[in-house]
Amino acid sequence: MIVAVIWSEVPGSALAGRLELTDGDATLWGRERSGDERTASFSCHDLIDVRIERFGPSRLGGRPTLILEHRSGRLFGISPIDSVGVLGELAERFSLQSKLLPA
């Protein structure tokens, strides 16, 4: 599954790009407003928390945002662009893949 997203590694600036989720692996690619490109990838098994933040400073692009907490301590915020209902679907997938939710 490939989704158009705004994402950031918290704390950090927002990037526009994509999230690719295949089997248990997630790859993020994006470009900042400055033009810098960045990628990040991790295995879903290494996530220790998956949640949606609807309010507050974690919102990316003024939208509810999926927050993924990696066991290394890294924190990712992901917010899908222009696709109604995808946020919930992503949250479910990450939870299942990370075994935080029983399948």
């Binding site: 490939i2 989704v3 158009a4 526009a16 790009g17 994509r18 690619w29 470009r31 033009g35 490109e37 662009i81 222009d82 696709s83």
Partner: peptide, 15 residues
């Protein structure tokens, strides 16, 4: 146009 623009963010790495 909507789908094409979404594809651009997702796949094209365009400016």
């Amino acid at each position: 146009v909507q789908e094409a623009l979404t594809n651009v963010v997702k796949h094209a790495r365009a400016r």
